[in-house]
Design a protein around this nucleic acid. Structure first.
Lengths: 222, 222
DNA sequence: GGACAGATGTAAGCTTTTTGTCAGGTAGGG
DNA sequence: CCCTACCTGACAAAAAGCTTACATCTGTCC
C-alpha cells in the first residue's frame, strides 16, 4: 500500500517513515509543500499524512486544491498541539482525521488503518444515536432517515456531541471544540447554537443536563 | 498511586524514586528484569517506568510478555540517548511513551501525568458502594441499577463520599471539598444538601455518624 | 455597486432549576 | 432530662438555560 508523507521536520519524518515501513506500507516522503502537492496530484496513493506547516506551499492549501480537483484520497493532518483553529480548518477543508503533535506512533497507525478501512468502504463513516445520524465523509445530517440541512458550525456541533454520545459535553468544552482555543465567550452563543439545532433536528434531539452539559439523544430503550 | 520503577542504575533510580515520592506516588523499585517482570505480573500498579537496559531480563522482553498476557498497564520506557531503534521497538512492543536519557525530572512527571490521564479515560470509571454507584465519566448516579438525576453539587458530594467510602467525612471536610475557595459557612447548607440527597437516593444511602461526619452506605454483609 | 440571503454573534427578558438561608423540630448521648 | 448536633420544610436568591430580536459579516447575483 503506497502512502504519501508530507513533513519537513527530518526527525519526525524519519520516525514516521520507519514505523510505516515496518508496518508494511510503501512510503514516499516529500519535504516541501510544492513537491507534496505535485506527488498527490499525479501519483496514486492509498492515503496521505500531511503536516500543515510546510515550506513553499501550506498544507491546508494543498488539501483544498486536491479536493477542488476532486481527489478525495484519505488525508490525515498533523497539527501543532492545541491549535484548534487549524484543526477545525483542516477538517473543514476535507481532512479525514487529524493528529496533534506530539503524537504516539501507535495512534497514527491506528488512525491510518481506520481511515483506510473507512475509505475502502468496509466500514461506514456514519455515526448515529437515536434518530440522528451523521455522515462524516459527506458532512450530512439525517433525522429519521431524512436529510436535514445544517450550517458548518451546526454540523461540527453535532459531530462533537456524536463523538461523545455516551456523556454530556459542557458548554466550555463545546466552545473549545468549536471555536479557536482562546476564544473568550461572554455571550450565550452556544446556547443559541443548540437552540437553532433543536429547531432543525427536533425538540428532543439534544438534551440538557443542567450544570453538566448537552448530550445527543440516545436510543430510547425505555 | 502505586508505581513500579525498573531501573538498574542506583544513582538514577535514587533520583527518580525521590522525585516521584515527593510528587505523592508510592514507588516500588526493582533492580533487575526478572524481579520487575514478576512484580508487574503479580501486583497492581497504576503505571510502570521501565528502563530497557536491565540485567537478567531485557526491558523490551518484559514489556512484550506483559502485553502478551493482556496486561495493558501504562508503560513509559527509558532509552539511551539517540537510540532510535530501541525507541521504535519499544513503542511497537506496546509502550505508551518513552523518554531518552538523560532526561529532566519535570518531563518524566509530565509524561507520567499524561499517560495516567489517558489511561484513566479507558479504565472503568465506575465507583460503587452498597446499592449506589456513580459513573465518573458520564457523571451519573445509579441506585439499584436505576438512574437517579442529581444536580452538579449533589454529584460532587456523592463523589467525595464515594472516594472516602471507608470512613466518615466531616461537615468541615465536605465543605472544603465542595466549595473549594471561600469555605466560611455559618449556615447549614451541607446538612440541607445531604438531606436532599437522601430524598433522592434513599433514606439509608448516607449514614450519619454523629460528631464525626457522613459516610456512604456500605454493602450490608451483616 | 447594491440588494439580498445565509450564517453567526450579541443582547435582553424570561423560565426553570439549583442552591443558600432561616426558623423551628427531632433525637442521641451523657 | 437537656444540650447539641442534626434534620426538615418553606422561601428567596442566584445561576443556568431558553427564546426572540436584531446586528454583522460574507458572498452572490443582477
Amino acid at each position: 500500500m503506497r502512502l504519501l508523507l508530507a513533513e519537513d521536520d527530518p526527525l519526525i519524518a524519519r520516525d514516521i517513515v520507519a514505523q510505516l515501513s515496518k508496518a508494511g506500507y510503501v512510503v514516499t516522503h516529500e519535504k516541501d509543500g510544492e513537491a507534496a502537492w505535485f506527488a498527490g496530484e499525479h501519483e496514486d496513493f492509498a492515503a496521505v499524512i500531511l503536516d500543515l506547516g510546510l515550506p513553499k506551499l501550506d498544507g491546508l492549501t494543498i488539501l483544498k486544491r486536491w479536493r477542488a480537483n476532486g481527489r478525495n484520497i484519505p488525508v490525515i493532518i498533523l497539527t501543532a498541539r492545541g491549535n484548534w483553529e487549524e484543526r477545525v480548518e483542516g477538517i473543514d477543508a476535507g481532512a479525514d482525521d487529524y493528529l496533534s503533535k506530539p503524537f504516539r506512533m501507535p495512534e497514527l497507525l491506528a488512525r491510518l488503518r481506520a481511515v483506510l478501512r473507512r475509505y475502502a468502504g468496509q466500514a461506514n463513516p456514519i455515526l448515529s444515536s437515536g434518530p440522528i445520524s451523521i455522515d462524516t465523509r459527506q458532512k450530512t445530517v439525517m433525522v429519521d432517515d431524512l436529510l436535514v440541512e445544517v450550517s458548518p458550525l451546526e454540523y461540527r456541533c453535532i459531530a462533537v456531541l456524536m463523538q461523545n454520545r455516551d456523556r454530556a459535553v459542557s458548554q466550555m468544552e463545546l466552545t473549545e471544540q468549536l471555536y479557536a482555543q482562546d476564544f473568550e465567550r461572554e455571550s450565550n452563543s452556544v446556547e443559541v447554537l443548540v437552540g437553532r439545532l433543536r429547531k432543525k433536528l427536533g425538540k428532543d434531539a439534544i438534551l440538557t443536563r443542567r450544570g453538566f452539559g448537552y448530550q445527543i439523544a440516545q436510543d430510547e430503550a425505555t
